[in-house]
Amino acid sequence: MEPFPDPYPGPATPPEVRVYEVGPRDGLQAERAVLTPEVKIAFVRRLHAAGLPTIEATSFVSPRWVPQLADAEQVLAGLGDLDGLRLPVLVPNVRGLERALAAGAREVAVVVSATDSFARANLGTDRETALGRAADVVRGARAAGLAVRGYVSMCFGDPDEGRVPVAEVVPVVHRLLELGCATVSLGDTIGVATPAHVRALLTALAGTTDRLALHGHDTYGQALANVAEALEHGVVELDASAGGLGGCPYARSATGNLATEDLLWMLGGLGVRTGVDLGAVASTSLWMARHLGRPSPSRVVTALAGGALRSPADADPAPAPEPRPST
Rank of each mutant, 00 (worst) to 15 (best):
137 V>D: 06
285 S>V: 06
178 E>F: 03
191 G>D: 07
183 T>Y: 12
42 A>T: 01
109 A>F: 03
199 R>G: 15
66 V>T: 09
46 R>H: 02
43 F>I: 01
239 D>E: 15
228 A>H: 14
230 A>W: 13
144 A>S: 13
208 T>I: 01
277 D>R: 15
63 P>K: 08
10 G>N: 08
309 L>Q: 10
205 L>H: 11
148 V>C: 09
207 G>M: 02
223 A>D: 12
67 P>K: 07
19 V>T: 08
159 P>R: 05
78 G>C: 06
286 L>I: 13
278 L>V: 09
317 P>E: 02
273 R>M: 04
21 E>L: 00
17 V>W: 10
53 P>K: 02
197 H>D: 13
119 A>R: 04
301 V>H: 11
116 D>L: 02
207 G>E: 10
247 G>K: 11
144 A>I: 10
76 L>R: 07
25 R>A: 02
283 S>P: 01
168 E>T: 07
42 A>N: 00
222 Q>E: 15
163 R>L: 13
174 H>F: 06
106 R>I: 00
162 G>F: 11
130 A>P: 10
220 Y>L: 15
22 V>S: 01
78 G>T: 03
10 G>S: 12
45 R>S: 02
268 G>A: 09
180 G>A: 03
237 E>H: 07
233 H>T: 09
186 L>T: 05
235 V>M: 10
114 A>D: 08
316 D>Y: 02
187 G>M: 12
221 G>T: 08
43 F>A: 00
90 L>E: 01
49 A>Q: 08
211 R>A: 05
166 V>L: 06
9 P>I: 06
158 D>Q: 12
161 E>H: 08
4 F>D: 14
291 H>D: 03
203 T>P: 01
177 L>F: 03
180 G>Y: 12
194 T>M: 08
294 R>I: 10
306 G>S: 11
295 P>S: 11
177 L>A: 14
181 C>F: 12
16 E>R: 15
78 G>H: 00
38 E>L: 00
57 A>W: 00
245 L>Q: 07
142 R>S: 11
219 T>A: 10
66 V>H: 08
264 L>R: 10
138 V>P: 10
142 R>N: 05
227 V>K: 08
48 H>M: 01
189 T>C: 04
122 N>E: 06
33 A>H: 04
202 L>W: 14
87 L>R: 15
309 L>V: 06
313 A>R: 10
67 P>W: 08
221 G>H: 14
273 R>N: 03
28 L>Q: 08
76 L>K: 05
200 A>R: 14
233 H>W: 14
231 L>S: 04
262 D>C: 05
31 E>H: 07
53 P>C: 02
64 R>P: 04
220 Y>T: 09
102 A>M: 01
150 G>K: 13
225 A>D: 09
133 R>T: 06
185 S>I: 08
12 A>L: 12
286 L>A: 03
241 S>W: 02
86 R>V: 01
285 S>G: 06
26 D>L: 06
274 T>W: 11
174 H>G: 03
46 R>M: 01
115 T>V: 06
298 S>D: 06
161 E>V: 05
217 H>E: 14
121 A>L: 11
207 G>I: 00
226 N>R: 13
29 Q>H: 14
93 N>R: 05
142 R>D: 10
53 P>Y: 00
70 A>Y: 04
39 V>M: 05
62 S>V: 02
30 A>D: 15
229 E>K: 07
67 P>N: 07
167 A>H: 10
